[in-house]
Amino acid sequence: MTTMDYATYIAGLPRVLAGAGAIFRDADQRILLVEPNYRDTWILPGGTIESDTGESPRQAARRETAEEIGLDVELGSLLAVDWVRGEGRPPLVSYLYDGGVLDAAQLAAIRLQEEELLSWRLVHPDEAEKLVSPQMALRIGAALQALVEGRGPAELEDGLPPKGSSSAMG
C-alpha cells in the first residue's frame, strides 16, 4: 500500500470519540458528582481524551479531574469501559478509573472549574442514580461492583454488559 493509499484508508475509517473519568469516594463510600452548566444531569469528573497530543485514557482522566475539581491524584484501577452509542454523534468509548478515597483535607481542597461546573456533592450510589443519566447510573453501578469484587474492569455497551459477556475484561 502506498503512502497516499494508506492516508486515504485512514481518513475513511469510522470515527470514535473517547473520554475518561474517575470515581472518587469519601470514607462513607459516597461518590463525588459534579454539576455541569451545559447539561441537566450530574456527572463524574472527567472529559475528552486529547488524542492529538498522544494522551492515554488514564492521562486524560487525571488531567480532566485536576482541571475540573483541582485535585491531581494518582488514579487506581480501570473499573469500566463503556461503548456508548449516541444519536447525532459518533460512538464514545468511556474509560472509568478508581479515583480512590478522598480524605477531609482533599475534600476541602476541591476547587471547581468555573467555566464548566456549578457545584459538587458527595452522594450515596442510590442517590446518584436520581441525579445522573440512566446510562451513567449503569456505568457507575458496574464500576462500583468491579471495585467491591476486586475483579477486572466491567466491559459495557451503553451501560450494560454485552450479551454473552462475563462483564469483566481480561
Rank of each mutant, 00 (worst) to 15 (best):
V73Q: 05
L75H: 10
L75D: 06
L75M: 15
L75N: 06
L75T: 05
L75S: 12
S77M: 13
S77V: 11
L78Q: 04
L79V: 02
L79Q: 02
L79H: 01
A80F: 14
A80T: 09
A80V: 08
A80S: 15
V81F: 13
V81A: 12
V81L: 15
W83A: 07
V84D: 05
R85T: 15
G86K: 08
G86P: 00
E87T: 08
E87Y: 09
G88P: 06
G88V: 14
G88Y: 14
R89N: 01
R89F: 12
P91S: 11
L92D: 03
L92V: 13
V93H: 02
V93M: 12
V93K: 03
Y95R: 02
Y95D: 06
Y95L: 09
Y95K: 01
L96Y: 08
L96I: 13
L96D: 00
Y97H: 11
D98T: 07
D98W: 07
D98E: 12
G99M: 07
V101F: 03
L102M: 15
L102G: 12
D103N: 15
A104C: 01
A104T: 08
A104Q: 07
A105C: 02
A105P: 00
Q106P: 02
Q106W: 08
L107I: 15
L107Y: 11
L107S: 13
L107V: 15
A108Q: 05
A109Q: 09
I110E: 08
I110H: 05
I110G: 01
I110K: 02
I110D: 07
R111T: 10
L112S: 05
Q113T: 00
Q113S: 06
E116S: 04
E116N: 01
E116T: 09
E116I: 04
L117Y: 11
L117C: 02
L118G: 03
S119V: 00
R121H: 10
R121P: 00
R121M: 07
L122H: 06
V123Y: 07
H124M: 12
H124L: 14
H124R: 11
H124Q: 06
